[in-house]
């Protein structure tokens, strides 16, 4: 399987935080979610991959052959977008269109106008232009998305795109992801970060979990759903079940948590029910374990 990005040992050292070494893959033709709590290093990793921040060491191989992010060929292929403050706040749609056209070779003004209409934003060619600062956070995000989707890119990299969107808009975002991937069947990929995967599960194919600047688990969602199981039981059996589980939450009457599927038989002996976890449940289990390990 081809990879859109192969991350080989990327490391970024800050005064009080170190990212890495990161070894991971962003498979080609799919939507990959970078899942982790705030401060896990998701934004730092994305910044390094897109050339926003320099790295301390390591390498990333893009599309199987390109390695230098500071090259126009690669910059044109990657559609990067952050979630807040992506453009200066006094910019209007008109200025955004002009700057996007100057900043990249593949910006399509017609497509931009279409997307603005579709996202219920103003016309980029209207006489009266509104500054970004006057828009709600949701509309700001829609503007950023319209700008980056109006480019003909091969890899979309979005840093927390869902954070300022309401559930309906997040659902729309999932549709946009599928549309993007479908347009160049198999040649386009998406990487997006989130600290809440709940309503973007249905557009996620591959997941990379991060905590404390490290990757703690990664894989295709369907494979992860076979590797782990969700376990429920009565609280009196919690202590017996815990050693076989990754992590679990116990309340007054019951407990629930994630375990490796290979421990299923063992766990069923403690009067538990097991089922296939959702990506959300998996995230909670895996990230909770990382948190407990880090203490």
């Amino acid at each position: 399987m081809k990879n859109a990005i192969e991350i080989k040992g990327i490391k970024k050292k800050y005064k009080d935080f170190t990212l890495g070494e990161i070894h991971a893959e962003i498979p080609c033709g799919f939507a990959t979610a970078l899942i982790g709590a705030n401060g896990a290093g998701k934004t730092t990793l994305i910044d390094v991959l897109c050339g926003v921040t320099g790295k301390t060491s390591g390498e990333a191989v893009y599309f199987g052959e390109l390695t230098e992010i500071d090259s126009d060929t690669l910059r044109n292929k990657i559609g990067y977008c952050s979630s807040a403050n992506f453009f200066p706040m006094d910019w209007t749609l008109k200025i955004i269109a002009n700057s996007m056209e100057l900043g990249f070779d593949n910006f399509d003004r017609t497509k931009f106008a279409e997307l603005c209409r579709r996202f219920k934003l103003d016309e980029p060619t209207a006489k009266k232009q509104k500054k970004l600062i006057k828009l709600s956070d949701g509309n700001k995000m829609r503007t950023y998305l319209a700008a980056v989707l109006a480019r003909d890119t091969e890899l979309l990299v979005l840093d927390e795109p869902g954070s300022s969107l309401d559930p309906l808009a997040r659902d729309l975002l999932c549709d946009l992801f599928r549309e993007y991937l479908s347009e160049r069947d198999g040649e386009r990929s998406i990487l997006f970060s989130t600290h809440n995967i709940a309503d973007m599960e249905n557009a996620t194919d591959y997941a990379i979990f991060m905590a404390n600047g490290q990757v703690i688990e990664q894989g295709f969602v369907e494979d992860l759903k076979e590797k782990y199981i969700l376990v429920h039981g009565d609280s009196e059996n919690a202590d017996k079940a815990k050693p076989f589980m990754l992590s679990c939450t116990v309340n007054k009457t019951s407990f629930e948590g994630i375990a490796f599927a290979e421990n299923a038989d063992m766990l069923r002996a403690f009067d538990t029910a097991t089922e296939v976890p959702t990506l959300q449940q998996l995230s909670v289990g895996i990230l909770r374990k990382a948190e407990e390990d880090g203490e």
Binding site: C50, R75, N85, F87
Partner: peptide, 17 residues
Amino acid sequence: EKRLPGGKFFRTTKGGF
């Protein structure tokens, strides 16, 4: 600056620095 609005956008455009 990178942390100001637009900072990240400018650092990903053609021609970089």
